[in-house]
Design a protein around this nucleic acid. Structure first.
Lengths: 349, 349
DNA sequence: CTGAAAGCGCTAACAT
DNA sequence: ATGTTAGCGCTTTCAG
């Protein structure tokens, strides 16, 4: 194994010079730099991660905690995780993959051992048990005098109280409002909201509620009636839910769907009932673009910007590690894309 | 930050004693052990990962390289990744998430820096450019005399040549054969195989070809005719593909589908054409159980055991790290579950 | 069964 | 602009 000392010897300089060439933390004459770089290349030197971490008390690793549960829409998580990993690399960090399984203990373990310099948490619950740990061990505010004690974190998703925390999320409230506006503009007055599985609401993940709040309040403003029904997803559950909705509000002409596994069943059922989309009813979804474009009908939708969420989370956490950056809540503005599933409300006939 | 030395002092023992209590590498009197453990608890001590890695030349980290591309069925990857992470934890390892983006360089970087002790690679291509690196730097065979130079790896998937490599995968050949046997048993003579997107075949990922080979050879043995057509997935592509198949082989009564995004479109199209499943035609899929059970028809399927693949990969890699374990190819036997989408061939009428 | 002490490879003062 | 050197916190001989 090639060590820094060997590189130094080979290049005829001191160890610290090699170190500084690597880190760029002090100016090096072009000549020396080149000799050192040449030696590094010729010897095939790779700095030892452990030694570095020990000497600098920085591991250059960001821990990413993903939910163990897989009842959320998985591709979104994967996309976020991949975006986190690639963005982290562009900032010189690697990503450690933690599952929610260990819970708060994982936070302590990874944080206290110096395994990771910072954490990104996905799928935060409104009153997450990991939050207290994060609050007092992270951020410029909470920085202890002792070196390297600071372990900043960023949440993807919003807990009930964000004080002392940094969070990134889609502005689901605005997303809900956007859906209503679009339908209202097309003349729809009676809309139904097909939501996530009841379990999602019970777990208090927040995003579903926020969508609903935004949606209802805008519906109120615009004078629309909105009926909300959670739905497990899948054909059977969707069939039941749809029947109930149409029973209660036969005049429903617009559907907002926030549940990837309900999208296709809904479209199939509507088709089967002879309700044409978008001629008879309009459907708008809050879902990743991929789902919207690959459905049997190209769906008008508000996108869930998975990549951007991952990227922003990394940028925030890196900013904190660099001493820039503050506790803040970044709500990504939703974007609505009109595709083929929404249209003007049918004229009464 | 609490150090081992502080624990030692607090417990009134030497540093090495604390270390040995932690590692269990030599016998400690019950009395001392308890005093040490108490100090550890009271002080809230967590061993420093960097120092450990440096002193022991083991990071206790396994790198997992996932494909950047997301045209594969994502939930399976996620499930594998999560299984890898949780299984690794039970063996005392953490998981570093690498994307394919960096390619071979990532292997070198992570391996040479000692960041990870071993690697698991997903989505290996038949002639993957990372393989040479892995072959000569890993495994009991390739162990260099110098300590800690050995970086074992395990592939999830099979490359063209597996010599000097350890691999885990579903036995896709057997899976294909199983599908044919099931259909043959039900009396089907003309079957169509709806495969992955052409890109998957072109990329030479292997698994799709292996399924097909197993399927065709068994079809030959049993005297069935099998027509294979790749398919992009999605409604439009599936419609075209289906039309061609029925045009060329109007007598087709059995479908084998290996493409998650073609499953639902196929079912919808069959329904639309008035072909009842399983009365008129049988459909069998090679897909994760979740897909099979959540489709609009409960599908008879051969499962893709994502969790088991992840778990096995970790177990193999840990065995290698422990000096047990050999280069071997683990092919997981496929299991066929009969659900509602297959039945006897309709009697000629 | 326990201690003492020599590194592991690198970083970051402190020198010059 | 470069060299010297003292650790970083832990593991692991070597001694007892």
């Amino acid at each position: 194994m090639v060590t820094l000392a060997e590189v130094a010897q080979h290049a005829g300089v001191s160890a610290s010079t090699v170190s500084y060439v690597l880190s760029g933390k002090r100016s090096i004459s072009a000549a020396t730099r080149q000799r050192v770089e040449r030696s590094i290349r010729e010897l095939g030197y790779h700095p030892n991660a452990g030694a570095r971490a020990l000497a600098s008390s920085k591991s250059n690793i960001i821990a990413l905690m993903v939910p163990l549960r897989t009842d959320m829409y998985v591709p979104v998580m994967m996309e976020i995780a991949i975006a986190v990993a690639t963005t982290a690399r562009t900032h010189g960090y690697d990503v450690l993959l933690l599952t929610g399984e260990e819970g708060p203990d994982a936070v302590r373990r990874v944080t206290a051992s110096g395994l990771a310099d910072a954490m990104i948490l996905m799928d935060v619950e409104l009153d997450d048990e990991r939050l207290p740990l994060l609050r007092d061990a992270g951020g410029p505010t909470g920085a202890k005098p002792g070196v390297g004690e600071d372990r900043p974190s960023v949440l993807i998703g919003l807990p009930a109280s964000t004080s002392g925390l940094t969070c990134v999320d889609l502005d689901f409230g605005a997303a809900g409002a956007l859906c209503v506006e679009h339908l209202a503009m097309l003349g729809h007055r009676d809309i139904a909201v097909i939501g996530e599985a009841p379990a999602v609401y019970e777990r208090h993940t927040g995003f579903a509620e926020r969508t609903l709040d935004g949606l209802r309040s805008r519906a109120r403003d615009l004078g629309l009636r909105a009926l909300h029904r959670p739905c497990e997803g899948g054909y059977d559950a969707m069939a039941v839910t749809l029947a109930r909705i149409l029973d209660e509000r036969p005049g429903t002409t617009g559907f907002v769907v926030q549940n990837e596994s309900a999208v296709e069943p809904l479209l199939a059922l509507l088709r089967q009932q002879g309700r044409a989309v978008p001629e008879d009813v309009s459907v708008i979804a809050v879902c990743p673009d991929q789902v919207a474009t690959q459905a049997s009908v190209r769906l008008t939708s508000v996108a869930i910007p998975a990549q951007e969420m991952g990227r922003r989370a990394v940028e925030l956490v890196v900013a904190k590690l660099d001493g820039r950056g503050t506790d803040e809540v970044v709500l990504i503005p939703p974007e609505l894309t009109v595709r083929g599933s929404t249209g003007p409300v049918p004229s009464a006939s």
